[in-house]
Design a protein around this nucleic acid. Sequence first.
DNA 1: AACTTACTTGAGACTCAATCTCAATTAAGT
DNA 2: ACTTAATTGAGATTGAGTCTCAAGTAAGTT
Lengths: 142, 142
Amino acid sequence: MEKIQELQEIFLKEGLRYTKQRETIWQEINSSTEHRDAEDIYFTLKTRGVATSRATVYRTIEVLVRNNLVRALNIGDGRYRYENKLDQTHHDHLVCTECGKIIEFLNENVEQQQEQVARDHGFTLVRHIHQLFGVCEECQKN
Amino acid sequence: MEKIQELQEIFLKEGLRYTKQRETIWQEINSSTEHRDAEDIYFTLKTRGVATSRATVYRTIEVLVRNNLVRALNIGDGRYRYENKLDQTHHDHLVCTECGKIIEFLNENVEQQQEQVARDHGFTLVRHIHQLFGVCEECQKN
DNA sequence: AACTTACTTGAGACTCAATCTCAATTAAGT
DNA sequence: ACTTAATTGAGATTGAGTCTCAAGTAAGTT
């Protein structure tokens, strides 16, 4: 996988060593499209027999987020979820308040309006958080 | 102020007693248009000589938020800010990542698109978080 | 290959916002 | 005034995340 090259280059660029733990954490986040929290990643690695610690998980995720390999998601319940950026396309999230299901969406119109709002107030837009909370079809039935 | 009547009715409706602490906390949040955190509200009351505790502040804010008298704002730095809803109009927030300034904005187009996105995925929209992060005009100069 | 040096790791201590506990207090109905 | 159940508050607890520092290790040097 040539993606591992990119990972190595990022650590090189940051003046950081390329270690087994860092690679494993990156692989774990890339292994699914789920939105997982740090504790989950930590325990999955532990269960899989990979030696690691919370400190290393958090430290590595910090580097990955800073370098845009992973996205941190704050859905307001006090802990971040992380998603890989393998698919590259930007999107926001629609969260079911009943079952926690997370659906990704993209609305170009909204994206443009955001730029407009920032311009109107003299801001240079850096990033945005846009999350819709509602009840999904299945949960509405229950 | 007839707003206090509404406050009393809400506590009545919830089967809660109307106490000096609860009224004072509500007044404190209504006393400015700032976006303040719980600790700030707690200390301001303390400084003003009003006996209270963190527990009471948090418990009261919970009731106020639930009853739509106060809005909780999660700007991603680990602690909620609270704003009063005296002006009634819905808005979202544009936050300066340098100086922390918070500007309120409303974009009808975006509001409509949000409803559309929810519909498209079979969701019933309950609420949303929409925050733009950027650098304000003053901070760009520095 | 052995040596050196500085970066990394991990167990557990610590932080900080927020919640919980429970004895003392108090609102509000009788 | 009496009764009773809700409320308060000091401090303990929780939980996500960060920090500490001795032990481990990557990678360059001899």
